[in-house]
């Protein structure tokens, strides 16, 4: 589904952050990308979602046979790519419901499906609410405006549940969550696991992986994937920290 080959990217006009990332994700798989701060995890997530401000200097990203990097952010979303933001953006003046229905209808239109009206959308929302245990009142409020950190993260997963992407990229979805909120969010993500959907989780801590068990774990450092393995690799990281990673990266350079 997703094939990243020797991806190199830098901040526009600035420092190179990705130094040749290789990664392959198949439908149904859950991958965790772990790494110390500054390793390039979030940059990778942003580059996949199409955020402006990065320059691709080499490599390719193939998604369902398409050149993902050639697509605008909205085209990626319509093709089924979803990024759950580490810092969800507040949009005062636009209600959550209206925003999400507009997004869903854009995506449906590009799939050649009929748009959903306000009534049908409400019914869909009621169903999805159960997945993330989000307060219905929040949906009538402006997007993320005045939400707590935990509410924002839940809202991201709620959007994920409504938009039903093919490839979900979760950028530090666990950061800033207490243990109860983490459980709720993880439960939501697990509910979204399906043989047709792939999930890529970017995280600093192993904690999230206790609740969402990945098929593959990758260690990203210095802008490339240093080691890949099964879920045990995460435990190894938990015990030993990232020091060995830094040592190895220093050696590679």
């Amino acid at each position: 589904m997703l094939k990243i080959t020797n991806l190199q990217a830098r901040v526009a006009g600035g420092k190179q952050i990705l130094n040749g990332v290789n990664l392959e994700v198949r439908p149904g798989e859950v991958h965790a990308i772990m790494g110390p701060n500054g390793s390039g995890k979030s940059t990778l997530a942003h580059v996949l979602a199409g955020r402006e401000g990065y320059e691709i200097i080499g490599g390719t990203v193939e998604y369902q046979g398409q050149d993902l990097l050639a697509l605008a952010p909205e085209e990626r979303a319509r093709a089924g790519v979803f990024l759950a933001f580490q810092y969800p953006v507040e949009i005062p003046g636009v209600s959550n419901m209206f925003f999400l229905r507009t997004a869903l209808n854009e995506i449906r239109r590009h799939r050649g499906e009929e748009e959903v009206d306000a009534m049908d959308f409400m019914a869909l929302v009621k169903k999805k609410l159960k997945i993330v245990d989000i307060d219905e009142a929040l949906l009538k409020r402006p997007v993320n405006a005045g939400f707590s950190g935990g509410e924002k993260k839940r809202n991201e997963i709620f959007q994920l549940a409504v938009l039903e992407p093919t490839l979900a990229i979760l950028d530090e979805t666990d950061s800033g969550l207490d243990i109860d909120a983490l459980r709720t969010v993880a439960w939501g993500v697990n509910a979204m696991r399906s043989p047709k959907r792939a999930i890529v989780m970017v995280t600093h801590y192993q904690r999230l992986l206790e609740y969402i068990v990945p098929d593959r774990v990758h260690v990203l450092a210095g802008g490339r994937i240093l080691r890949s393995g099964g879920k045990d690799l995460a435990l190894h990281l938990e015990e030993q920290g990232y020091k060995w990673v830094k040592d190895e990266t220093a050696g590679v350079r």
Binding site: A49, G50, R51, E52, A72, P73, E74, R76, A77, R78, F82, L83, F85, P88, V89, I91, P92, G93, V94, F99, L100, T102, A103, L104, E106, I107, H110, P142, Q159, L163
Partner: peptide, 27 residues
Amino acid sequence: EEMLFYIRSRGIDRAAACGLLTYAFGN
């Protein structure tokens, strides 16, 4: 630009995202 990217990342094109933010501003 942060808001625009967030909206676009949900499948809404730039021109419609600008409309949405214009609406939010004027509403």
